[in-house]
């Protein structure tokens, strides 16, 4: 075999492999950083009441109500999508998608809380979550470009 052929084979095998390794490293770093950031923000807003109950507790005196939304579009890295593809062959639990949705939902809820706080509210009631898949325009729309998570609720300004 000519050395040129060997180089061609190395390039053809090596590039996707390099992409996988690179995606794995970047993806893990990004995910770990996101979880750290989420934990910090969640701790900071622990005392901010955000509930899914659609009524206002009787002891609260409401001055003002306002709709607040928070949304995020989040996607998996190439490596995890590759693993999920393999997992689909045998079936079972796909952990990488679980953590993706967990991150998306927590981020959306944090954004609702932050939006509520930014407009001077003291609590959010009736938080609802909605998830939508965004189809990628490449791959005939089959590949997933990301998941959108929307959280919304009614922010209340209370008399204290």
């Amino acid at each position: 075999m000519a050395p040129a052929d060997l180089i061609m084979i190395a390039v053809q095998l090596g590039l996707p492999l390099l992409l996988l390794v690179g995606a794995y490293l970047c993806g893990s770093l990004i995910e770990a950083a996101h979880y750290r950031q989420l934990r910090r923000r969640e701790q900071a807003s622990q005392n901010f009441p955000a509930i899914t109950i659609p009524s206002v507790p009787e002891s609260w005196t409401v001055l003002e109500a306002q709709l607040v939304t928070g949304s995020v579009v989040i996607s998996l890295d190439y490596f995890k999508r590759f693993l999920a593809g393999l997992r689909k062959l045998v079936g079972g639990r796909i952990k990488s998608y679980e953590s993706l949705l967990d991150r998306g939902r927590r981020e959306a809820i944090m954004r609702v809380k932050e939006a509520a706080r930014a407009c001077g509210a003291h609590a959010v009631v009736n938080i609802r979550l909605e998830t939508a898949c965004l189809a990628s325009s490449r791959q005939n729309g089959k590949g997933t470009a990301g998941v959108e998570v929307l959280a919304f609720g009614t922010a209340l300004k209370l008399a204290r």
């Binding site: 690179g22 970047c26 990004i30 949304s71 989040i74 890295d77 190439y78 981020e107 470009a145």
Partner: peptide
């Protein structure tokens, strides 16, 4: 935006372009 999101799709994480797009539309 689709091109940038495509690149971002390799390493994962938030696709800010799409987040903004959907926020504006909503």
């Amino acid at each position: 935006r689709d091109f940038m999101a495509g690149l971002k799709n390799i390493i994962g994480g938030e696709l800010k372009g799409y987040t903004e797009l959907l926020h504006e539309a909503r």
